[in-house]
Simulated scan of single mutants.
Amino acid sequence: MKRNIAIVWGGYSSEIVVSAKSMAGVYSFLDKGKYEIYKVKIVKEGWTVEIDGETYPVDKNDFTFLCPQQKEKVRFDFAFIIIHGSPGEDGHLQSYFDMLDIPYSTCGMMASALTMNKFVCNNFLKNFGITVANSLYLNKDSKYGINDIANKLGLPMFVKPNTGGSSFATTKVKSIDQIQKAIDDAFGETPDVIIESFIEGREVTCGCYKIKGKEVVFPLTEVVTSNDFFDYNAKYEGQVEEITPARIAKDMTDEIQRLTRKVYDLVGAKGIIRVDFIICGDIPYLLEVNTVPGMTQTSFIPQQVAAAGLNITEVLTEIIENEFNGN
């Protein structure tokens, strides 16, 4: 009998448009001969399952649904979470599924909450020898001076939503008169903001997953864009060159793969994660940890899986089945 797999997509942030693309990617990758696959959309207006163009409400009490063609509720055996941002990347859904004893594809609640908060995560990892950019944290109650920020971090600098993603409301600030607007834009996306010093270098990203008795670290991808930085248009509108494997020396590749494995263990990760770095001189600076990486046909992880000579369908099957094999 096939397991029922829910691809959980949507979310409460601007990243819903990216989640929709990742959902389509995951749906195309999953083994339909092995699993019954359902698309479950979670938005603030409600939770629904789409079948043949019709939508049916999800019962949040037990994460089941009923459609007229079926006599019994459909119960999900596994949730493949592909919500970028809240509530799928910040620990909320993970806690919900933990309480219902439904296994899922991503990191657990604590790791998800930690990695979603860029400032907290980077400073946590800094304690273990991971090199990160200098940064400042602001919330709605923070008192700050524009000149003080510029003096501490220098120009240019990056202003980002602290718990956002996909480069929404992220600004590369080049002059002091741009700082306030960048902060206001970031606050429009999330209730807190991270401001980071600019690191000049080559951007790379590395995926990794671990299951019982097996560890896989993928080849690196190098990110080259003519845009000011790897912004939304570069990520999703094709204004970028993504080179897998990255054109960097073997010793630097080995070091970044080692750091990726270390980060995986330090944050207590599960499933596939992706860790982004920028190489300045001979030092790799960690940018951020992604516990729900993009999964479109052309996203980094599918690229890296292919470059490693692996099959994405088999990789995702391994991750799902690992949850049922006493991991």
Rank of each mutant, 00 (worst) to 15 (best):
E200K: 15
E200P: 02
E200V: 11
E200T: 13
E200Q: 15
G201S: 10
R202A: 02
R202K: 15
E203L: 10
E203D: 13
V204W: 09
T205D: 14
C206T: 13
G207C: 09
Y209H: 11
Y209R: 10
Y209L: 10
Y209K: 10
K210L: 08
K210D: 07
K212A: 15
K212G: 12
G213R: 13
E215L: 14
V216Q: 14
V217L: 11
V217D: 06
F218P: 05
F218M: 15
F218N: 06
L220F: 12
T221I: 04
T221E: 11
V223H: 09
V223C: 11
V224W: 02
T225S: 08
S226R: 07
S226H: 08
S226K: 13
N227K: 14
F229S: 13
F230K: 06
F230M: 06
F230T: 02
F230V: 05
F230E: 02
D231P: 07
D231W: 07
Y232N: 14
Y232K: 14
Y232E: 14
N233I: 07
A234G: 12
K235V: 04
K235D: 03
Y236V: 02
Y236H: 13
Y236G: 02
E237I: 05
Q239T: 05
V240D: 04
E241F: 00
E241D: 10
E241A: 03
E241Y: 00
E241Q: 08
I243N: 05
I243K: 09
I243Y: 07
P245E: 05
P245T: 06
P245A: 06
P245C: 05
P245H: 06
A246M: 05
A246W: 04
R247Y: 01
R247P: 00
R247F: 02
R247T: 03
K250R: 11
M252A: 02
T253N: 08
T253M: 06
D254M: 04
E255G: 00
E255V: 00
E255M: 04
E255Q: 10
I256H: 04
I256R: 03
R258S: 12
R261C: 13
R261K: 14
K262F: 08
K262W: 01
K262G: 01
V263S: 09
Y264L: 10
D265C: 01
D265L: 01
L266T: 05
L266P: 05
V267G: 05
V267L: 09
V267Q: 07
A269M: 00
K270Y: 10
G271T: 01
G271A: 03
G271D: 03
I272K: 06
I273Y: 01
I273C: 04
R274L: 10
V275R: 01
V275G: 01
D276S: 09
F277E: 01
I278T: 06
I278F: 10
I278L: 09
I279M: 09
I279S: 08
C280W: 00
C280N: 12
C280D: 04
C280Y: 00
D282P: 05
D282S: 15
P284N: 08
P284W: 08
L286N: 00
L286M: 08
L287Q: 09
E288H: 06
E288P: 04
E288D: 11
E288T: 06
V289A: 03
N290I: 00
